[in-house]
């Protein structure tokens, strides 16, 4: 049986852990709200850009000489996976689940005879993937959310990726990120960035939009706009993944810390019970000693 002293120490240490985890939960909660707001604020831009691209790609459909970003290189031998993770741990399965999915994809692609390259956004993902896919990592970025997640950062990533694409370093680019559903659930989502896949049109809207599209004028030209819009779209998509990922991270951390706080509470209850029982046993045995001592006299 553990001594009273050591029990007391353990209770004290679990109590201080609980304080830390509950503070972290509150910090994550506040950050989550901010991240969610930012993600919501960025949505209109992405939506409108998608709409514009949809119209453009429809008017260009079937024509020759579409930009390479849209048409692709015609093969899919080399695939670049962009992995969005957090810089820090203590957020439950957030990083592990995305890395697991990426590992699965790597195995799948490799068994199909493709080459895989990795670009990591976030320190944790890089560290975890470095262990067994060290040779595949072609670039990584850390501290994207410090001091704040800005569009410029996403733009930088997009520039790097574009440059690699122009040099023919890969054929297909897919980004993996955690889609923020709620504080409890985040969904690992793969999204193809290059070649650009136009969003599937909602039913019913197709016909209606079709008649409108025929009437659009373009300045300077369809190709001109498209070649300006596509790289822009890449930045926007990356920015969106980063925002979603940031919100998911805080959500995951909040949930994880909530669980940890609750577990610490349970543990304190159990330990206090053991502590009190031990204390009673000690008193009883002391009493017995005194009484039996007195009887012997």
């Amino acid at each position: 049986m553990p001594s009273l002293k050591s029990l007391k120490n353990r209770i004290a240490s679990v109590k201080s852990t609980r304080k830390i985890t509950s503070a972290m939960k509150m910090v994550a909660g506040a950050k989550l709200r901010r991240a969610e707001e930012q993600a919501n604020a960025a949505r209109p831009y992405a939506e409108r850009m998608e709409r514009m691209l949809g119209e453009l790609s429809a008017s260009l459909a079937g024509q020759q000489g579409a930009p390479k970003l849209m048409a692709g290189t015609g093969k899919d031998d080399v695939q670049l996976l962009v992995v969005c993770t957090a810089d820090r741990g203590l957020c439950g399965g957030f990083n592990a689940s995305i890395v697991k999915e990426v590992r699965r994809k790597i195995t799948e692609l490799e068994s199909a005879g493709k080459t895989v390259k990795l670009f990591c956004i976030g320190r944790k993902g890089r560290d975890m993937l470095r262990r067994d896919h060290h040779d595949k990592i072609v670039g990584s970025l850390e501290d994207v959310a410090k001091p704040a997640l800005t569009f410029d950062k996403a733009d930088d990533v997009a520039r790097i990726i574009l440059e690699m694409y122009e040099q023919g370093a890969f054929d297909v680019c897919i980004v993996y990120y955690n889609l923020f559903k709620s504080a409890m659930t985040q969904i690992v989502t793969p999204q193809q960035l290059i070649p650009f896949a136009p969003p599937a049109k909602a039913e019913g809207a197709g016909e209606d939009a079709g008649t409108l599209k025929a009437m659009y004028d373009f300045e300077p030209s369809e190709e001109g706009i498209l070649s300006a819009l596509l790289p822009r779209n890449l930045s926007v998509q990356i920015f969106r993944s980063m925002l979603e990922s940031a919100a998911s991270e805080q959500g995951a951390r909040m949930t994880a810390m909530d669980n940890a706080t609750r577990n610490a509470g349970d543990m304190i209850d159990n330990l206090s019970l053991t502590y009190n029982r031990t204390r009673q046993a000690v008193i009883t045995s002391e009493l017995i000693e005194i009484i039996s001592g007195a009887e012997a006299v």
Binding site: Q38, A41, A42, P44, Y45, T150, F151, P220
Partner: peptide, 24 residues
Amino acid sequence: FELVSPEKLVISRKLEMVVVPGSE
């Protein structure tokens, strides 16, 4: 009229006219 930047929706309102600096 809607003015949108990557970070947020800046303006969304109804106007009589808006003059925009097109590339041409």
